[in-house]
């Protein structure tokens, strides 16, 4: 697909969503969904208020911490398991199985282990994100073409040179795909962690608004989270495509 066509398609999707949203508002009224314009205005108001910032900071901190754990833990684990053929073969189906169980079932365990604070959110976010990153990294390393490694040997590369100039370029595109999925799932996990049993963060604001039936605030927060998530994913997808272009 050409770049122009991709932009056009994206614009069409956004326009369709806005139209549908406006239509629901017209039919169901402000108690069902606030209009797009009112939602944007309210979101802007919220962001302008000082008491909003600690919540945002809490969510962002939890997300970044969870992401760091998922990324470093996931790549580290995946590369180690993938480098050893046998452990890789044994570990991969286990992680795929873990990937498919709904992790919400583990939430009570995490609450018991970490309490109600930010740690539980971080743990829950990391738990969601780390598994795809492990799977992708593991497969990236397992699938490094043997002939490339043999070529490195015929050119008398040192082990460090082989890692730097063959293994890393060969695995980065695949690992990055894992990061893209992992980053999205980490956000999901972190938000889920905030919805239940937390006292701060965007998720907490969302739950409070639901209790008060404050539709405007619900919509505004949903909008902010969606925008962030879509922007992050689009940026990573663009980079992902560039990395994969040559393979």
């Amino acid at each position: 697909m050409s770049l122009a066509a991709r932009w056009r398609d994206s614009a069409l999707v956004v326009a369709a969503i806005l139209a549908l949203w406006q239509a629901i508002n017209l039919v169901g009224g402000d108690n069902l969904m606030t209009s797009p314009l009112a939602t944007v205005q309210h979101a802007a108001d919220m962001v302008g208020q000082a008491r909003f910032w600690p919540h945002l900071r809490e969510t962002v901190t939890a997300y970044l911490a969870a992401l760091a754990i998922a990324v470093f833990g996931g790549i580290g684990f995946g590369v180690l398991l993938g480098a050893h053929r046998l452990t890789g073969e044994v570990a991969e189906p286990i992680f795929v199985a873990l990937y498919s169980i709904p992790k919400v079932t583990l939430y009570p365990v995490i609450l018991l282990a970490f309490g109600l604070g930010i740690q539980a959110k971080i743990a829950f976010g990391a738990l969601h994100g780390i598994i795809p990153i492990v799977i992708f990294s593991l497969n990236a390393v397992r699938q490094v073409n043997r002939t490339w490694l043999r070529t490195a040997r015929t050119m008398s590369l040192t082990p460090m040179q082989t890692v730097r100039h063959v293994i890393i370029p060969a695995t980065v595109p695949e690992i990055f795909s894992g990061l893209r999925v992992g980053a999205a799932l980490t956000l999901l996990g972190t938000m889920l962690g905030e919805l239940f049993a937390s006292q701060r963060g965007l998720g907490f604001l969302l739950m409070t608004a639901i209790d008060l039936h404050d539709v405007k605030t619900i919509m505004a927060i949903a909008l902010l989270i969606t925008l962030f998530s879509v922007a992050m994913n689009a940026a990573m997808l663009a980079l992902d495509r560039r990395l994969h272009a040559r393979f």
Partner: peptide, 17 residues
Amino acid sequence: VPDGVGVVFQEDASFPW
């Protein structure tokens, strides 16, 4: 592989990146 020996493999070994 000692210095002074060059090998061209049967399979494609070019680096796609």
